[in-house]
């Protein structure tokens, strides 16, 4: 097995692959990331041939690890990097139990965090990535970790997976070409390219910060932003969490604290520039 150990936020990964190319691509994509603390990874993600004979003969890549989904769809080897990255996502999505995990993006400025939630395809990843290139520190484009005891947000700055039109958008604003992974064509998610978060986001990944606002962005013509009640915010956040129930009472306390101390706002935005402008407006109102 080819192997790479690395740390993303609080997660110390051991990543394994039956093939060399995906691991080399992962090493380039995650250049600059620290090794696990004390050289001790505690979570394993791996990709392997679906069947032993499928290693070289029309290879079928299976997504495996300490935590697995039974009906995961195998992928082709040219999408090996995507398969490895998904195996890593699966470990935190299914395995995280220390922090309350929200399926959302988040950015930080002056120690205060804006969380961008919404189903996949609502543009939260792209908006988070763009904000990360315009004066905000990207905490994550996909997984927001809330510490039960303190309510603080921990960063999980994984490589951002840009899809279809978002690829060109970020190519226009990110000068450093090395931060991009290879362009992967016709993956199950369409065309896809990974982008390594800005050096600042990696260097300061252990700096926690206080949540100040939860946004629910959706594509559409810019309409009047709409606040929401605490109970509704609580319900929406629990639906947007992969481990809310599994944390039991600590999950309840953490989520109730978030939903009753941080405002939740819906807004529609026509395009990325419009979306970023609206976020800056909210930030100004909150003095961030």
């Amino acid at each position: 097995m080819y192997r790479l150990d690395l740390r993303v936020g609080p997660v110390g990964y051991r990543v394994g692959s039956a093939w060399r190319r995906p691991i080399d691509a992962l090493r380039r994509l995650y250049a600059g990331y620290p090794a696990p603390d004390e050289g001790l990874a505690t979570l394993t993600a791996r990709i392997e041939p679906e069947k032993p004979w499928r290693r070289h003969l029309r290879p079928q890549v299976a997504i495996r690890g300490d935590f697995e989904l039974p009906d995961a769809v195998p992928m082709t080897l040219d999408h090996g990097l995507l398969a490895i990255e998904m195996a890593m996502n699966l470990q935190i999505a299914l395995g995280e139990r220390r922090h309350l995990l929200l399926h959302a993006g988040a950015v930080e400025r002056n120690g205060r965090v804006i969380i961008l939630t919404g189903e996949s395809g609502s543009g939260k990843s792209t908006l988070s990535a763009l904000l990360g290139e315009h004066g905000w520190r990207l905490l994550s484009d996909e997984f927001v970790l809330i510490e039960p005891g303190t309510g603080l947000v921990r960063a999980f700055p994984r490589a951002i997976s840009l899809k279809n039109a978002a690829i060109a958008e970020l190519e226009r604003v990110v000068a450093d070409r090395d931060r991009f992974g290879p362009l992967l064509r016709a993956t199950p998610k369409g065309d896809l390219r990974h982008l390594r978060p800005a050096p600042d986001a990696i260097a300061r990944m252990d700096e926690r910060a206080m949540p100040a606002l939860v946004l629910f962005p959706t594509f559409g013509h810019a309409s009047q932003a709409e606040g929401m009640g605490q109970a509704e915010l609580f319900a929406l956040l629990t639906q947007g969490s992969t481990n809310y129930a599994a944390l039991g009472e600590r999950g309840f306390e953490t989520m109730a604290r978030l939903a009753t101390t941080v405002p939740g706002v819906r807004f529609a935005y026509p395009d990325s520039a419009g979306g970023m402008a609206i976020v800056e407006q909210f930030a100004a109102e909150l003095g961030i």
């Binding site: 505690t42 139990r97 220390r98 039991g248």
Partner: peptide, 21 residues
């Protein structure tokens, strides 16, 4: 135990507690 191992085992305790409920 090393800190990261303690945290991994703590996560397992949280899961076991949930399973038991």
């Amino acid at each position: 135990l090393p800190v990261s191992v303690m945290e991994a085992l703590e996560a397992a305790r949280v899961q076991a507690a949930f399973d038991h409920v």
